[in-house]
């Protein structure tokens, strides 16, 4: 494990009765990297995050946080983890400052630094105006912020966020995304979600899980070359697939072609269109590429893409 590889998980396996929720998952996340963990509901994302956070024991496999084995050196490893479960872990009868103080003490923040630590986290998460309010009186958006504040309070090296924008309105979603982006550079971050646009915006690497397994693990935007193109004069599908690099061409009723390419084929498509006089009306690179990949992989067509 290199110095900048902050989280490494090998062969994680976890079953619930006969159902295998997580099956041989391998993950590595380095400093400054934000891994977007995608999958359908029940794909094993939350179970994986629980195992990585130490909240649930795996049946098999190993998790290492900055070189500390989560099973053997659990307390040292957990000190380095900030974890936001799917439902924010809150004592709603506490005030925001009281709750963050409680978490800071549990995380082992020295008494002398408690006040500064809580102040820094509340300022960073936009909670300064509500520190004296009871958590149960806060809106869902603010409760989510408190959840994120407890996760980043002790400056963890590894940040695990399970559906951090769950149930938020668009303005709150934008704020939370900005917050995650601002926190990411010094840490290894994993964001679990089933919102594709969120992953596209936040992640440097995308992992797709399906039925407990990793079916795709590659940098954001790589190996996903697609081209959405509209023509004034529609060509035949054979003419499109004959272009060098175009693997498949699908016609969409909305009036565009979606070309799947094995590399960036936009210059050749443009050249061909000009020569044949099809008249390009629109050309967008990688349009819906992630959606197509996601749907293809989670429909059972398991293609493991190498990073």
């Amino acid at each position: 494990m290199t110095e900048d590889m902050l989280l490494a998980a090998t062969d994680l396996t976890r079953s619930y009765g006969r159902i295998r929720a997580v099956d041989g998952v391998q993950l590595q996340v380095g400093r400054g990297e934000t891994l977007g963990l995608l999958g359908l509901n029940g794909a094993g994302k939350s179970t994986t995050l629980q195992i990585l956070a130490g909240a649930l024991n795996a049946d098999r496999g190993k998790v290492s946080i900055c070189g500390h084995d989560l099973a053997g050196d659990g307390r040292a490893a957990r000190r380095l983890i900030g974890y936001l479960p799917q439902t924010p872990p809150l004592y709603d009868d506490m005030k925001v400052a009281e709750y963050l103080n409680f978490i800071a003490r549990i995380q082992g923040v020295p008494r002398s630094g408690l006040s500064d630590t809580v102040q820094r986290a509340t300022a960073r998460c936009g909670l300064s105006d509500v520190v004296g309010r009871l958590i149960r009186h806060l809106s869902q958006g603010y409760q989510q912020r408190v959840g994120i504040a407890q996760a980043v309070l002790h400056e963890p090296a590894v940040l695990l966020l399970d559906e951090p924008t769950n149930g938020l309105d668009p303005a709150q979603i934008r704020d939370v995304r900005e917050l995650i982006t601002s926190l990411a550079p010094q840490r290894a971050t994993i964001v679990s979600t089933h919102i594709l646009s969120e992953v596209r915006m936040l992640a440097t690497r995308i992992v797709i899980m399906h039925e407990g397994r990793v079916v795709h693990d590659a940098p954001n935007g790589s190996a996903l070359d697609t081209l959405r193109v509209s023509f004034a004069h529609q060509p035949q599908v054979e003419a499109l697939t004959a272009i060098d690099g175009v693997v498949a061409a699908e016609w969409h009723e909305q009036g565009y072609w979606l070309l799947r390419c094995d590399e960036d084929c936009s210059p050749r498509v443009a050249e061909c269109a000009v020569r044949a006089g099809w008249g390009i009306a629109e050309m967008i690179k990688n349009y819906d590429a992630l959606e197509h990949l996601f749907l293809r992989l989670t429909a059972g067509d398991s293609v493991v893409a190498a990073a």
Partner: peptide, 14 residues
């Protein structure tokens, strides 16, 4: 019931 216990497992609390 509130899943707080599972969260506490993810902290250094023994």
């Amino acid at each position: 019931r509130s899943n707080m216990l599972r969260f506490l497992y993810a902290t250094p609390l023994s």
